[in-house]
Computed example of a mutant assay.
Amino acid sequence: MKDIVRIDDEVITADAFLKTLKLTGRFEELIEEMVRDKLKVHAAKRRGISLTTNEVQERADQFRRVYGLHRVKDMNQFLDAISVSLDDFENFIIEILYQEKIMAEVCSEDAIEEYFRMHSPKFESIELGHIVLKSEGKAKEIFSILEEEPELFPELAKEHSIADTRDHHGMVGKVLRGSL
């Protein structure tokens, strides 16, 4: 597999890099991010969002300015150093622009208002549960458990809560907006 970096006689390969990403839990995060980005690009294309050559050029120029790549030679050396072709760089810029445009369209104030209007019943109530405990120390203990494993809420409510909702695994039920 391809070498990424050399430190004295030690070589870090792409395979070792991937293993480190997986062992540290960052691999899944990166894959999820890449999938989300690709889904945005596909959504933008399905919606017929278009890009102009000028937009692509402006964004490429902006990238070069940020990285201090003011001359063509500097840009070519940068791309060679990271083993990225000019076509790959252009595709990267295009995908960023598609992502930005679809997010601007989908996340505009008007789009958010429209979504809220169409789905307002979902936002009018919430299913509420609680665990009532005798001491702050016990509350902190239960809270720390729930931070790690929130799915344990019903079990912990039934076992530790002193409220009458314990028989219902801590569930109070639906609560309307503004009623608390």
Rank of each mutant, 00 (worst) to 15 (best):
M1V: 10
K2N: 14
D3F: 00
V5L: 05
R6P: 00
I7T: 00
E10N: 06
V11S: 06
T13I: 05
A16Y: 04
A16V: 03
K19F: 01
T20C: 04
L23K: 12
T24D: 00
F27T: 00
E32G: 05
E32K: 09
E33Q: 15
E33K: 07
R36M: 04
L39V: 10
K40A: 07
H42N: 14
A44C: 02
A44G: 03
R46E: 15
I49P: 00
S50N: 08
T52I: 06
T53P: 01
E55T: 01
E55S: 03
Q57H: 10
R59M: 04
R59V: 03
D61W: 06
Q62M: 06
Q62N: 10
F63G: 03
R65I: 03
Y67E: 06
G68I: 00
G68E: 00
G68Q: 01
L69N: 02
R71V: 07
V72W: 08
K73W: 09
K73A: 11
D74H: 08
M75E: 07
Q77T: 11
D80W: 03
A81D: 14
I82A: 04
V84F: 14
S85W: 05
L86I: 12
D88C: 06
E90A: 09
E90Y: 11
E90G: 04
F92S: 10
E95P: 03
Y98W: 07
Y98V: 02
E100G: 07
E100D: 12
M103K: 14
M103W: 07
A104E: 14
E105L: 15
C107V: 08
D110C: 06
D110Q: 13
I112L: 15
I112G: 07
E113N: 07
F116G: 06
R117I: 12
M118N: 15
M118I: 12
H119A: 14
K122N: 14
E124M: 12
S125H: 10
I126M: 12
I131C: 04
L133E: 07
K134H: 11
S135T: 15
K138R: 12
I142E: 04
L146S: 06
E148F: 09
E148C: 09
E149C: 11
E149F: 14
L152M: 11
P154K: 02
E155I: 12
E155W: 10
E159I: 09
S161D: 01
I162C: 13
D164V: 08
D167Y: 13
D167G: 09
H168V: 09
M171H: 02
G173V: 12
K174W: 08
